[in-house]
């Protein structure tokens, strides 16, 4: 991978002109990110800090803020010692992420490649593959999913061909989480679309040149597609991981955490504590621990990215 040490070279030539240039680029940079910065300070930072504060209190969502009582690390203690459900929620979430996210990304990339041809009718195919994603979290999809995996549902009908006995997939503690994983994989439309946009950005000349050199399809995939798509793969990996660890809607509308808490995902448990049990302090503490967990894994992926993500422009500074 072409790493041009241009910056290090130029840094040595620190001349007054460049200093001015740097100051100017500082200004321009802040002008460009100003909208985000303003919105961050105006709308995001305060609520985040407030929830951080709540996590050290016994704040109940039904009370006004002044009733929150400081309890130190009590919420965190409860999480890791007495609350047996917390561990369940953590393990259910990890189980989900480990299977759902890689499978979803593989499907998304595979289908994106398949649809990235000059053939006719791609628009319709894309729409069809994107369809499950846009029915997303509606009540209707919850109803349908319960029926598809129900005792007399489609899945059992299909499996009967292979002599697999009927079972109630969604209500069974051994299989319930798998139906949610299947649902997640089936809704691969968003990462697929991002991959597709990424594939569109790869100049066709690269492939043409490779074809002239007699490279095989697999060869082209490994040495052209993968590296050039790596920024997008990286993005999808990070974002899917984050959203996977915060998975909520599907479990909320379809299983509600049942059976036996096997689908009680982390974010669902947070919601339950915050809005059904009115324990906002405890919910906030859980949320901040989740933030740390996600940040930990995200940091690992970010660190590793220098090894496998190829940018046209080398990161500076």
């Amino acid at each position: 991978m072409a790493v041009i040490p241009a910056k290090t070279a130029s840094a040595k030539l620190a001349a007054p002109a460049q200093k001015r240039n740097f100051r100017q680029s500082n200004l321009i940079g802040y002008i460009f990110i100003a909208p985000w910065l303003l919105a961050f300070f105006a709308f995001t930072l305060m609520p985040m800090l407030a929830s951080l504060y709540f996590s050290f209190t016994d704040y109940s969502s039904l009370d006004s803020l002044d009733k929150a009582r400081w309890v130190g690390l009590q919420n965190f203690e409860r999480m890791f010692t007495t609350d047996t459900k917390y561990i369940k929620a953590v393990s259910a979430t990890f189980f989900y992420v480990i299977f759902a996210i890689p499978l979803r990304l593989i499907f998304a990339l595979g289908l994106a490649m398949l649809l990235n041809t000059g053939r006719k009718g791609m628009g319709l195919y894309r729409a069809a593959f994107y369809a499950p994603s846009i029915v997303g979290g509606s009540i209707a999809v919850a109803v349908m999913w319960r029926q598809v995996f129900g005792t007399e549902g489609l899945v059992n009908g299909f499996l009967a061909f292979f002599g697999v006995p009927a079972r109630t997939w969604l209500g069974n503690p051994d299989t319930a989480i798998w139906t949610l994983i299947v649902l997640a994989v089936w809704q691969f439309g968003s990462p697929m679309l991002i991959f597709l946009a990424g594939l569109k950005q790869i100049p066709t000349e690269f492939y043409e040149a490779a074809s002239i050199d007699g490279a095989s399809g697999i060869r082209k995939f490994i040495s052209i597609t993968l590296p050039l798509l790596s920024p997008v793969i990286f993005f999808n990996l990070i974002m899917q991981m984050i959203s996977g660890l915060m998975v909520f809607t599907q479990a909320f509308i379809i299983t509600g955490g049942a059976p036996l808490d096997t689908t009680l995902f982390y974010a669902l448990y947070i919601y339950r504590r915050a809005f059904e049990n009115f324990q906002m302090g405890y919910a906030s503490a859980m949320a901040w621990v989740l933030l740390l967990i996600i940040a930990f894994f995200a940091a690992i992926v970010f660190r590793s990215s220098s090894q496998w993500v190829y940018y046209e422009t080398k990161e500076e500074g």
Binding site: F22, S25, N26, L27, I28, G29, Y30, I31, F32, I33, W36, L37, F40, T44, P47, M48, A50, S51, F54, S61, I238, M239, I242, M246, F248, Y266, A267, I270, Y271, A274, F275, M280, A283, S284, A287, W288, L290, L291, I294, A295, A298, T313, E316, G317
Partner: peptide, 30 residues
């Protein structure tokens, strides 16, 4: 701005931005 302009604090602000994605919305609603 984040990807093409080199300015002081860029990495910090980027990290802040990504962090905002990691806090479940349920606890910031109120």
């Amino acid at each position: 701005g984040f990807s093409r302009v080199n300015f002081i604090g860029r990495k910090f602000w980027f990290a802040c931005m990504i962090t905002t994605l990691m806090l479940p919305v349920q606890v910031v609603i109120i």
